[in-house]
Design a protein around this nucleic acid. Structure first.
Lengths: 344, 344
DNA sequence: TTGTAAGCGTTATCAG
DNA sequence: CTGATAACGCTTACAA
């Protein structure tokens, strides 16, 4: 018994192909009675549409845009690399991709970029930008023009985004906290560093981290966050100073990017060997440091999954189909030296 | 500028559609000169074939079989559940799946099952069975009949399998060892339990575990492996006895399945609270124990990825296309309570 | 050795 | 409101 096609439905329902198509695609101009006949046939035969044949006939080309932060960041670099890789794979079939970079800290520039997108010729946008009122408005505008929106890596919970693809920052922070508590057994203080506590993700990671440390690991005390404001030199300087001033530090939690200057400062301090360092995201810098035993663990998200998931979800959203949640859930990866994915 | 089609190639090369097709599919009966003309056109226009349209025209239905161990095992249950889930998703498009279960410890029964497969009507087989000479022969036979073979979860390194989908057992053991060494800071012994050391995977995990413990964590000493031979009652009994007899035990490494009886025994001993327990695979039992804080960490592989990867790879192999390695690499997941994937 | 034409499952155009 | 009929990009008899 073969999979039923539109032809079978047409025969079974006693109507023409065109009518079946109209019903299946909920197009107007069909009598209720006819609709019922067709739907009956669909039920009885267990028809399920062949999306690929449909896309072929429709000459469908999904137009998606990825809006990513510009400027030097190893994490966004790996994300862009993953995007490039995905473009040349099956997953990007019938997808035309436009990648736009924006200055992450300039909400108005972001909005300008978003406006410059031709919404009429766009099916979906994946957005990795901090949430601001301006961005929320821009999202609403795009939505109003029929564009699907997914928030990528960093959620836009109060916007009208259709979906979020990334990890829960509180859970990520809790994971880091738990590992810190178990790895660093001596009593002492934990240095917490980040680019900026203005970002929601940093706040949430800190929140999760603190919850676990104070609930489960009373031998540790997390110090107030140090912010680098994306200034590498500043980061190095401040970390140097704090490490020198506080001999009780036993661990370092790096919540944001900028692991390179952090590691430089720690190496210079001569105390890296006794410190438990935990950071986020697998980048060339953190990978190397894991290899060397300088970082104990990295909390990461698989960038390959991230971009593939974004494309799948945008496509599904564009087709008004239900999303297969289990496949799209991004896991919080724990990476130590021993399970570091080979770059072979 | 639109994506070039076979028509464009035909026009550019000054030949017919059929000839283009013959060249693209390396079918015989085309003059070298003509082949060159077509290939030139392909190069110049940057043609890339639309696999979906091709499969549509070809009425392709991939016939795959999954051969899995029978009998009660929470891990294989989750694997089968993942398989079922995948079947009803896009990934299984144009795939007809047959799932066969075999008694894992009876090589001859496995071979009988493999023989009963109609190789002529089969494109590929995913195999999760222990490697034995009989299995190797059966694989060779299937290969000879043109069936593609992937080893799933457990590699068949000395057979003619086309691909292995799973994690490296030595690395998995090393990961477990490293976590054990960092989590269990008191000096003491580590109990190591498994179903059977006859399995290559157990041997390799043990090897990796021992490497790391002896190299990096001299405060721990791994005891000889205890084998349960898939006998839950026996497992409980032996573990009870050993725990009672050896007060120096600070950690337990469970290399195989059978975590339920193990946990029962540990609970009964009243010492579970002081023990660092590390096990493999995320199942209802280990998930629950993670949640309760009874197990410190689980080394896992994502069963969803496993089955999706198997299908993708079998399909790719059937089409004689190159495999996108990065996408198919299965990661060694470290799961603790804080990054436990929700079952929402 | 090469070309023509039909067909895969779906959508879309244009008459009726 | 409904039905033929021609696409979409590719494969495949069957002819030439």
């Amino acid at each position: 018994m073969n999979k039923p096609t539109v032809h079978d439905i047409a025969k079974e329902a006693g109507v023409s192909l065109a009518t079946v198509d109209r019903v299946l695609n909920a197009r107007p101009g069909v009598r209720d009675k006819t609709i019922a006949k067709v739907q009956g046939a669909v039920e009885r035969l267990g028809y399920v549409r062949d999306t690929y044949a449909a896309n072929l006939a429709r000459q469908r080309l999904y137009q998606f845009a990825f809006v990513l932060p510009e400027g030097p960041s190893q994490f966004t670099d790996t994300l862009k690399a993953a995007l490039k890789e995905a473009i040349s794979s099956q997953i990007a079939d019938r997808i035309a991709l436009k990648v736009v970079t924006v200055p992450a800290h300039d909400p108005h520039a972001i909005v300008r970029s978003l406006r410059s997108l031709n919404a009429a010729a766009l099916d979906g946008v994946a957005l990795m930008v901090p949430e601001t009122p301006q961005v929320r408005d821009a999202v609403a505008r795009l939505k109003a023009e029929g564009v699907r929106i997914v928030a990528l890596v960093s959620d836009l919970p109060n916007s009208q985004r259709d979906y979020f693809i990334g990890i829960n920052s509180i859970a990520a922070g809790r994971t880091a906290g738990s590992l810190m508590g178990r790895f660093a057994h001596a009593q002492g203080e934990v240095l917490v560093v980040t680019n900026s506590m203005r970002s929601r993700d940093s706040l949430d990671r800190r929140l999760g981290f603190d919850q676990v440390i104070s609930d489960d690991f009373p031998h540790l005390m997390a110090l107030p966050s140090i912010e680098s404001y994306d200034d590498a030199a500043r980061m190095e300087q401040v970390v140097c100073d704090v490490i020198a001033a506080r001999p009780g530090i036993v661990g370092v939690y790096s919540m944001g990017s900028g692991n390179m200057p952090l590691l430089n400062a720690l190496r210079a301090s001569g105390r890296l060997g006794e410190l438990t360092v935990i950071s986020h995201e697998l980048t060339p810098a953190t990978r190397q440091a894991l290899q060397n035993g300088e970082i104990a663990a990295v909390i990461a998200q698989n960038v390959g999954h991230l971009v593939r998931s974004a494309m799948r979800v945008l496509r599904t959203l564009s087709d008004d189909l239900p999303i297969f949640e289990a496949q799209e859930r991004i896991r919080i990866d724990i990476i130590i030296r021993e399970n570091l994915p080979g770059s072979r």
